[in-house]
Design a binder for these strands. Structure first.
Lengths: 231, 231
DNA sequence: TGGGAAAGTTGACCAACGTCATTTTTTAAG
DNA sequence: CTTAAAAAATGACGTTGGTCAACTTTCCCA
């Protein structure tokens, strides 16, 4: 699973580090981590970890996107998060002491660094800033997930698609949203066919542009409005 | 909101403390907290905090149940958690530094203790055990919420009701589940009428017993099976 | 560069579930 | 105990969105 080690990416020079919980390390700690971590190249659709197994460490995304998903009873994926550059993935299960409740795999070719469990926990123990960042991050996500639950329970698929596009445009930044229809459907929580029909509607209404699988937001205000009126 | 102070409940002697994150305090810390906290009596349906306001401290449930919910766009509640005796409520937003994303109110008459923000954060800083308990608790909940999202997206209302009853029977323990049909519907994520019809079905199938608003699990295996086959 | 597989698209159908309206039961207050 | 209001229950009905099947386009690799 952890295939060929890849050319080492320096944490000091890692521009995306500020996006995640490793932004709070002081200089010595960055070096420390740099010495202990390993860097790996992943191809599209490779698995980082799977539901049920036990965490051995955490993954820090240097380049590429990673989907975090649960498997429903019929094997259908529910994507609960898409991690972008700089995000650290897989530390929740490590902290809860349980096996992974979710699986993670790459959505595109990616560079991902790995920090072993002990090293990570060590840092957490000794570094107040990072600890607080983790607490903050977990709490924030918990709030976001509550909102997602509410949307799922109360909004139409159309509204949820708008909301999802909003979230995804934050994740993809300047780039177009680039997911298979199936992944997008599994993020919204609907059937692929329904998603496709709605994308068509959105396109006709001028909310988005579509180039094969790439989705561009054409009218963000319209999207936000449909999603429920606020970011 | 914080009405009449109530007879002081001793943390040392609090039998339910072990249910929550305050289980990890050492003796001196328990005393310390005991001196700083205040105890309050809440009537049924009183609000602890509301979405949008800023946290001033945390609530520790000594007796009674508390619902934690989000308000959807049309004012419909989505209950994301029901806190039982011993649980500490409202620390997530405090840690994330955001205003409350959720609201909380009592489902029955309750005794609830209040610990001010500074005192709580102090304890968190100085007490490793508690810190780890919080990290663990947050991570665990995050996992649970991911599963809830998956259920909501992929399961039928019938299956979700079974799953919800499973969760609720853990929360209510020996006691019957005692919620209004509306609250139960808002927990499952469905319309009140649909919930009522399904309860009737469950009763006819011998899965539950109903005494006015009280729901007793009559066939837990059947419920677990319907919910997806595992706890 | 071609061919096979994967992804995307479309149409037809219908069941699950939400909504609205009305009636019955339960609760709580005087 | 009485009574009004809240909660629970039931029925009728319509729509959203899921499923299945067939077809087309795009992707990728040999």
């Amino acid at each position: 699973m952890l295939d060929k080690s890849h050319k080492h990416v320096s944490c000091e020079k890692c521009a995306v580090r500020e996006n995640g919980i490793f932004s709070n390390l002081v200089n010595g700690e960055v070096c420390e981590m740099d010495n202990h971590k390993s860097c790996h190249y992943y191809k599209k659709n490779q698995s980082l970890f799977v539901e049920g197994s036990y965490p051995r460490g955490v993954f820090c995304v240097n380049h590429g996107k990673v989907k975090i998903y649960a498997l429903g009873d019929e094997g259908k994926e529910q994507i609960v998060h898409i991690a972008k550059e700089g995000e650290v993935v897989g530390f929740r299960s490590m902290l809860s002491g349980e096996p992974y409740k979710l699986s993670a795999s790459t959505l595109e070719d990616a560079n991902i660094c790995f920090v072993a469990k002990d090293d990570f926990l060590n840092m957490l123990d000794t570094n107040t800033g990072m600890r607080n960042a983790v607490l903050k991050e977990l709490s924030k996500e918990l709030g976001e997930r509550a909102i997602f639950i509410t949307n799922l329970a109360q909004k139409s698929v159309r509204e949820r698609l708008a909301y999802s596009l909003m979230l995804l445009s934050d994740i993809y930044g300047e780039d177009p949203i680039n997911l298979t229809r199936e992944d997008l459907a599994n993020f919204v929580g609907t059937a692929t066919e329904t998603l496709i029909r709605l994308l068509k509607d959105f396109k006709e209404e001028g909310l988005i542009d579509v180039q094969t699988r790439k989705v561009f937001i054409a009218n963000m205000d319209g999207i936000i409005n449909l999603a429920g009126g606020h970011r």
